[in-house]
């Protein structure tokens, strides 16, 4: 069940929670991720969906959040990481097809693993609870189907 132990998962999760909490306590903002795609597209697309006032007003801090995420991962990689840099072995077609569905689905659902999974659950939102159960279920079924079909 836990071939790598639980410590890195629990420590990482608590640090993520501290980051989200600090942002909330200082600014009242929910540090969620998938809106980043929509707000960033507001710089490039004139479609009304992207030009909504909320997207324009949020796009600068969402970019700052994204830069923070990258900086934090750089910090870990070059200081604490036992193995240093990492390059995935997952096939590019899977990153591409999966990425397309992740981008479309999270924006249709108005949340992802952080929006529904962390901030939504922490807010005791039943909407987010249903969303989490749904994406966990579909994720588990899809990963098993791929394994069954011999895609590893």
């Amino acid at each position: 069940m836990f071939p790598l132990g639980i410590e890195p998962y629990l420590i990482g999760g608590i640090i993520i929670g501290l980051g989200v909490s600090i942002i909330y306590i200082l600014t009242g903002l929910h540090a969620t991720q998938s809106s980043f795609f929509t707000t960033t597209l507001s710089w490039f697309s004139q479609l009304p969906h992207f030009q909504e006032k909320r997207n324009i007003s949020e796009r600068d801090w969402r970019l700052a959040l994204c830069l923070g995420l990258i900086s934090g991962a750089v910090l870990y990689t070059f200081t604490l990481s036992p193995s240093g840099m990492f390059v995935t072995g997952v096939d590019p077609w899977r990153l591409a097809l999966g990425g397309l569905l992740v981008g479309f689905g999270t924006r249709l659902s108005n949340g992802c693993t952080s929006g529904h999974g962390i901030s939504g659950i922490a807010s005791l939102s039943t909407t987010s609870l249903y969303a989490v159960i749904t994406f966990l279920g579909f994720g588990i079924i899809t990963a098993h189907l791929l394994e069954f079909m011999g895609v590893l």
Binding site: I15, I16, G19, V20, T27, A31, C66, S71, Y76
Partner: peptide, 14 residues
């Protein structure tokens, strides 16, 4: 937000 994001990214990598 950037500072909190650093923790968030550190935790994701960890």
């Amino acid at each position: 937000v950037y500072g909190g994001g650093i923790l968030f990214g550190l935790g994701l990598a960890w």
